[in-house]
């Protein structure tokens, strides 16, 4: 026993000489904040954070981690409205791969504290009028570059950020539902009654990038999981898909990453090679979500 242990240790040393075993290679964990500040250097800007063992500590903004529960509403509000500089997020949905597993819907609803009938993401069964077949189509907010919902908001409660994401500030929303009426994609949903787990969520600080806690009498919709993107993580739905339907990435980099296989491909090539389209381009909404057509033989 003793011998074996020793043996292991010496081997370990040997292997470490190779210089890789301990090296960090996970690309995703890099902080996206790099764009606005040096990720390793303290910014001097401190926020209150709730640790896993329920202690309130002050952390420098530059050192925030994905699981941190930030307790500073004004910081969260400011960050949520500003967005991530230098990015322009896009999603590509490969309809040929969608098998209606609905893992994305489940992940979305649990992340955003939605009731079963509320959908930020809805997998629809669509009819192909020509071929008389049907296919599955996940429909999220299209994060339009000419967003009709944002145009009509009377109080700037819904707005578009510099990284292209359309968000909602449910601390400001007055619940007029003009945006719901204006969205041609029916992407928005409303908290008609007291939201799910509202008593449990009462003490949670509102983060508009996650839009949690939900509030009665306000609108909610897909946020491209802006809270995840900040830490270089893929949206909840994208990483939940078992079938490789979703690609997500930054248009400025021309790279999108598949949520299932993690394969990163060129956005422009993917769109071109697969005859990608957007939903109802004739409306001039300029969506940030692209669709690759469903497979021809299906149905």
């Amino acid at each position: 026993m003793n011998m074996a242990n020793k043996n292991d240790k010496s081997r370990r040393r040997f292997l470490q000489k190779l210089g890789i075993a301990g090296a960090s290679t996970v690309a995703g964990s890099a902080l996206l904040l790099q764009g606005c500040s040096d990720s390793n250097q303290a910014s001097g800007n401190k926020v209150k954070v709730l640790t896993a063992d329920n202690k309130l500590v002050e952390v420098d903004v530059a050192h925030l981690k994905p699981g941190d529960k930030i307790q500073d509403l004004s910081y969260l509000q400011k960050r949520g409205r500003e967005g991530i500089p230098g990015k322009k997020f896009v999603m590509v949905v490969d309809l040929a791969k969608c098998k209606n597993a609905r893992k994305c819907m489940k992940a979305c609803q649990s992340a955003h504290q939605l009731k079963p009938e509320m959908h930020h993401l809805n997998v629809l069964e669509m009819e192909d009028p020509v071929k008389k077949t049907s296919y599955w189509m996940p429909k999220t907010c299209q994060h339009c570059d000419n967003p009709p919902c944002v145009s009509v908001c009377p109080v700037d409660a819904t707005f578009k950020r510099q990284d292209g994401i359309v968000l909602i500030d449910n601390e400001r929303c007055i619940g007029c539902r003009f945006c719901v009426a204006a969205c041609p994609y029916s992407a928005r949903t409303f908290n008609w009654t007291e939201p799910k787990n509202s008593d449990k969520m009462a003490d949670v600080t509102y983060d508009m990038e996650l839009n949690v806690p939900q509030k009665k009498g306000t609108v909610t919709k897909c946020a491209f999981s802006a809270d995840q993107l900040r830490y270089g993580k893929l949206p909840y739905c994208v990483s939940a898909c078992p079938n490789g339907v979703y690609y997500f990435g930054d248009q400025n980099e021309d790279l999108v990453t598949n949520g299932t296989t993690k394969k990163t491909v060129r956005l422009s090539h993917l769109l071109e090679e697969n005859a990608a389209y957007t939903l109802m381009p004739e409306l001039g909404t300029k969506p940030s979500v692209y669709y690759l057509p469903p497979r021809e033989s299906e149905g």
Partner: peptide, 20 residues
């Protein structure tokens, strides 16, 4: 050698790509 560092990184990769 499968050490804690590797396991941790493997976990991140697993959660992103395999959990679904």
């Amino acid at each position: 050698l499968f050490d804690d560092d590797m396991i941790l990184e493997g976990r991140v990769a697993y959660e992103n790509s395999c959990t679904s």
